[in-house]
Computed example of a mutant assay.
Amino acid sequence: MERTGGVLEGSIGLNAPTDDERRAIIGITGIYRPEGVKRLTVSLAELDAAIPGGLLQALGGRIRDRAAERASEEAAREDLLAASSRHAGTPWFSGWLAAMSADGTLTRLIRRGDGHLIRQACAVLDLLPASFVPLPVLAEAATGDTKALGRGSPLATLVLRALALRTPGEPERRSSRRESDEGANEERSGRDHERAPRELWESAGVILDDLASQVLVLNLRTRGGTVVSRWLDDAAAHGIPFRLTLQQQMEYEIVPDVEEIFVCENPAVLRAAAAELGMASAALVCTEGIPSAACHKLLAGCPRPRWRADFDWTGLRILASARLRHGATPWRMGAADYSAGLELGESTPLTGSPAVSLWDPALADRMGAAGRAVMEERLIPALLSDLTRTR
């Protein structure tokens, strides 16, 4: 009855009935059933007619109208899938809605009475990308609640899921391997796990913690007399690596004063440049994986940085994004460089979704054919030769 909205269609059955049950069914249906029958059936209409007050009253007077519920859920789901957004029609936004429909997320939200979260998520996404906006400010602007996008909240989970599709690359890329082989432990691994949400937010210009967003630099001389500029200049004068936070950049304008700036992905490259070249190294910025908001803000004032990353699919995405955002030029990121690195020893298999290399289409083709990654640490001697400058 719940399936049919209360319409008395179909029948119910009784297995291995007792003799009293058999006689009762005979009385209801008027049809003789022999002793020993293994199963008896009776139509709902006959049962309704035989029960004083009817079957519905016997069941307590109320039943769920499952057909109407299904129709209501379907209408609500279609309404959410048609949610208006300035991103409507983009592959990542369409993919976000389709995935939530396919895995039951929309249905669960509707049944919990939380369908409005999809509209709120669209409102948040409509304000992105932003320009270094604090997360509470974004939350208030989109929902009126500064805590709506707090860590682990249902709304934050929905938005991050969309940003994961919007953002090229893989936020979990930043691993403890890129930090240091010394002191690698479970605590560091835990910190790395926490980076993924922060990197997704930062990829859209949202800041969770402007002190936690940092960029590692070497020999970055600046113009201006602020305290942070003096720190950078002093570090450059001695060839000492310096970790610059987004908070410092927001408080004090940093204007690089270098003719050329290089960008690498792994700290091992910057460490080697500091140890072997010191003050003789060209200005070098290390992204430590996916570039942070601090990195993007710093490089926004640097014309055409020379940029490289690992020879893996995420590395290609990092460089492709840097070319679009910063006008970066590839630094030893061609097919010939990959082949040279591949010949130097064994390499780990390529993993993840393939990417393209528009600056050198042969590179992605060659990587796909070889199926191996080449980390940039293998190229350190060649990279140091590029970084060496006249004293």
Score class of each variant (00 low, 15 high):
337 D>V: 02
327 G>L: 06
351 T>E: 05
335 A>C: 08
337 D>K: 02
345 G>I: 15
361 P>G: 07
359 W>C: 08
355 A>R: 00
349 P>E: 00
335 A>S: 08
332 R>K: 00
357 S>V: 15
339 S>F: 10
343 E>F: 02
335 A>W: 04
325 R>S: 06
334 G>T: 05
356 V>C: 10
356 V>Y: 12
328 A>K: 05
342 L>Y: 03
325 R>L: 14
361 P>Y: 12
327 G>Q: 12
337 D>Q: 06
331 W>R: 06
341 G>Y: 05
330 P>D: 02
344 L>N: 09
359 W>L: 06
348 T>L: 15
338 Y>K: 05
349 P>I: 00
332 R>V: 01
352 G>Q: 04
338 Y>S: 02
333 M>P: 07
341 G>H: 04
325 R>V: 15
355 A>D: 13
339 S>T: 13
330 P>K: 01
325 R>N: 15
335 A>K: 10
342 L>D: 04
325 R>Q: 09
343 E>G: 13
353 S>R: 15
348 T>W: 07
326 H>L: 14
328 A>L: 12
337 D>C: 01
344 L>E: 05
346 E>K: 14
359 W>V: 07
332 R>N: 00
334 G>P: 01
343 E>T: 09
355 A>L: 09
357 S>G: 01
325 R>A: 14
359 W>I: 12
325 R>Y: 09
341 G>V: 03
342 L>A: 03
327 G>R: 12
329 T>R: 12
344 L>Y: 04
352 G>R: 05
355 A>Y: 04
361 P>D: 12
351 T>M: 09
351 T>A: 11
350 L>E: 00
330 P>G: 06
350 L>W: 09
362 A>T: 13
355 A>M: 03
359 W>T: 14
358 L>G: 06
356 V>W: 11
336 A>K: 11
353 S>T: 14
337 D>F: 02
347 S>N: 04
344 L>V: 10
345 G>Q: 02
338 Y>W: 03
359 W>S: 10
332 R>A: 01
345 G>V: 11
329 T>F: 04
339 S>D: 13
333 M>I: 08
343 E>H: 12
334 G>Q: 03
353 S>L: 11
360 D>E: 00
343 E>D: 13
339 S>W: 03
340 A>E: 12
361 P>T: 11
354 P>L: 05
